[in-house]
Amino acid sequence: MSTPLTRQIESLYLGRPATVTAVRTLTDKEKLFDVELADGPLGHEPGQFVEVSVFGYGEAPISVASSPTAPGGFQLCVRNVGRVTGALHRLEPGAMIAIRGPFGRGFPVDRMRNRDILFVAGGLGLAPLRSLIGYVMDRRSEFGHVTILVGARTPGELLFNDEYAGWARSPDTEVHVTVDRAAEGWTGHVGVITTLFPRIQVDPKTTTAVIVGPPVMYRFALAETFAKGVPEDQVYVSLERRMKCGVGKCGHCQINGIYVCQKGPVFAYAEIAGLEEAL
């Protein structure tokens, strides 16, 4: 045990040292962490994930919530649901963690260029989607019309709600927000996310849809998207699994024959349509 976080021995399981530089509370359950690696940029693609170590508690797979086009480090939006995420929530700026990755396959931004993009984000699904939304916003002229649908159970659970107005101010961009159940002071739309679909125009020939949300949302949001005529190979989803290793070994993230940590977490719907265990 000589110097901090050394790499004297090559190990697949040793992370890169990183510092939490800022912590922001987003909701009762989610916090946003700014993270800087000691040895340079993360070098991620929108949609990829990292394995975050809080020593003494373990490691958890977390999708990167910021665009690679954003300056400085990167951001992780973490819901407090377990041992490692609970420990993360107790960290304060300056805390040292370790990062392995980025892992997996992100959103295929090159295939999306010059196309209209329909974003459908349910709950915590906005965290990985925000990395792509940020990318598109930063390179706005490279993409067509952008429609962003955001849904949460209650107004208090809406993530990044201070950013919606900024997205909506971008040229040729519309943002629609809904909650399943209103609360006092809420003047916006009420209803599950699929109730936003009648409000939007989608050109199925020019649109790529990107849908990320909880398991229960996919079936309904996909049906609405297909009803708009968007073909299966132009619909992307990001799937949540319990990746323990991130490198295709531990077996936890497997869907039928596919390791989500290697071939995903982003999939074209056409790639997983026949897989019973996918959605």
Binding site: P4, I9, L14, P17, F55, G94, M96
Partner: peptide
């Protein structure tokens, strides 16, 4: 544990 934590890979 500490600030920073000292980590050593084991093979």
């Amino acid at each position: 544990l500490g600030a920073p934590p000292v980590v050593e890979p084991v093979l």
